[in-house]
Amino acid sequence: MPLLPGAEPFRHDGGEVGVLVCHGFTGSPQSVRPWAEHLAERGLTVSLPLLPGHGTRWQDMQVTVWQDWYAEVDRALRDLRERCSQVFVCGLSMGGALTLRLAAKHGADVSGIVLVNPANKVHGLAAKALPVVRHLLPTKSGIASDIAKPGCEEVGYDRVPLHAAHSFRRFLTMLDRELPQVTQPLLLLHSPEDHVVPPVDSARILARVSSRDVTERLLERSYHVATLDHDAELIFEETFAFISRLSAGVGAAPRG
């Protein structure tokens, strides 16, 4: 199945500091590619994978589960660790949730994490009905392109496949129990007005993680897909400053 325009994965070989960037549920690398490119332009080694079932058509996502999405970012992290002396992980929405699990499971192999409007729970009464409804209805209306900036659109599905949504809900429930295992320095940027993931999710994450080095920033002018919105440059600059503060190897040549 051909990829949607802009949904291609991105890779840049730079210095010995690596960054893994994770996109969101039903989205694609396009939604976070400017973020990845900003870091690549500053000499970092960057990996932005396409998650299984994404970037083509919603029917392809319907047959995937959270284990497939997590396995892809886990593989990308291990590849970066082989090449780089330090690795940071960044994620938007579900990408933020995947980032948190990588941090919980990989410990010191992850030097720091950056989260933008991270998901912690599938909200609403309909979420509780997912185990049954997914067998009756294949999809619901999509969540892509929650962006305040005029003329900006996210490359993602216009439908949410409910089998995949059910798996995502189970993943978030499991991840919530694992959040105390997250100890890395953390930069969290979130939008007070977000029509996909409410701010309460960010508050829950900050209350549950064990990180001591925590920075929180509000994205006052942006909605959910803030990496394509008015505050995108703020996200990019804050991310690079965060990585630079925690890494002596920014700009250094890669190992090997």
Results as ranks from 00 to 15, higher is better:
184 Q>A: 14
131 P>C: 06
47 S>G: 10
250 V>M: 07
90 C>P: 01
19 V>N: 03
169 R>S: 11
157 Y>R: 08
139 T>P: 01
112 G>M: 04
211 S>R: 11
34 P>H: 09
77 L>D: 01
38 H>A: 12
191 S>Q: 04
153 E>F: 12
50 L>I: 12
161 P>A: 11
58 W>D: 05
196 V>D: 04
20 L>Y: 06
253 A>I: 05
19 V>S: 04
106 H>P: 02
187 L>F: 06
250 V>N: 06
167 S>E: 02
79 D>C: 11
199 P>L: 08
177 R>Q: 13
19 V>E: 04
124 G>H: 05
173 T>R: 11
84 C>S: 09
130 L>C: 11
122 V>H: 01
96 G>H: 00
2 P>Y: 10
39 L>S: 05
228 L>Y: 05
188 L>R: 02
213 D>R: 10
27 G>N: 08
142 G>K: 06
249 G>L: 03
161 P>N: 14
87 V>M: 08
254 P>F: 02
161 P>M: 12
45 T>W: 07
64 T>I: 06
9 P>D: 13
164 A>D: 01
182 V>P: 03
89 V>K: 00
91 G>H: 02
133 V>K: 04
76 A>K: 06
232 A>S: 15
43 G>W: 03
47 S>Y: 09
99 T>H: 04
150 P>Q: 14
104 A>S: 15
242 F>L: 08
7 A>D: 07
102 L>M: 08
128 K>T: 07
250 V>T: 15
89 V>F: 03
232 A>H: 13
206 L>D: 07
59 Q>I: 14
25 F>Q: 00
20 L>T: 05
61 M>V: 03
104 A>G: 11
154 E>I: 06
254 P>E: 09
79 D>Y: 07
253 A>P: 04
4 L>P: 01
172 L>K: 00
214 V>I: 15
131 P>K: 04
125 L>A: 14
86 Q>R: 09
153 E>L: 12
212 R>K: 14
79 D>A: 15
